[in-house]
Amino acid sequence: MNTDDEERRVNAADEMLLTIDELCVSYRGRGLRTRPRRVLHEVSLGLRPGETLGLVGESGSGKSTIGRAITGLARAESGRIEFAGERVEHADARRRRRLAKDIQMVFQDPYTSLDPALTVGDTLREPLLAQGVPAKQAAARVATLLDRVQLPADAAARLPREFSGGQRQRVAIARALAPDPRLVVCDEPVSALDLTTQRVVLELLLEIQEATGVSYLFISHDLSVVRFLSHRVAVLRDGRIVESGTAAEVTETPQHPYTRRMLLAAPVPDVDRQRERRAAFARARSGAAA
């Protein structure tokens, strides 16, 4: 037994924490006669412990659905989702609650992802409560979490509406970190924030990963945000992965024309470079049209 454990610990670094294999998800339309619409087509990807995988795509590409399937908010139609060697795609409610210890999520909109009627402290206690942590320990944990995301200790007694967007997103991050998870799915966590706030929150996420070794599945439409935080990047289009590789490979020498177009479409704050980019984008677009 002991040697087994020992060995597992040694191998843990090479093992995938999360493996997704040919995952398909469909959403059922409203009404009786509408056919289900498939939003993910046989998506496969893997995530190692302490790694960040960036998922980029435009709206409707299915990037959020991947995150929702991992956390059980969307139902997998076929394919496998394996977390720490365990199939989880059809976990029942009881298993889900146990998995919540290890898989957490940060949502896009810091304004609607916090219950306006609950104090920050109550919100942070929520995942601890679900794990059956005793009240006294939970209170201590809340204090640690607030410190971790650089919020003042008295924040616990206040309501979300007293905080700015950036501060709220810190609360949401603290909530996700509460049960000390191994994977956090970040669904566009900074796209609702101001530029300067966005940078600060991203640096906080980086620092937390360095300190705790948590893995991130980082979902965003913004390549510049993704490359800043991700070790590897996968580009999604219409529910399929069109390109994946290290952040440098995908964002500096993109192979797929779609990735190239996305990169060229994002304007840079430099008048001359933007003029070049614009021309290159026009060429890429006409090339795609031809």
Partner: peptide, 24 residues
Amino acid sequence: ALLDAVLDDAPVRAPWQARPTRSV
């Protein structure tokens, strides 16, 4: 400050490296 927050020219993250696993 606004210009500094722009991420376009921020360094790309280095490839992942195995780190000492945290205690199970």
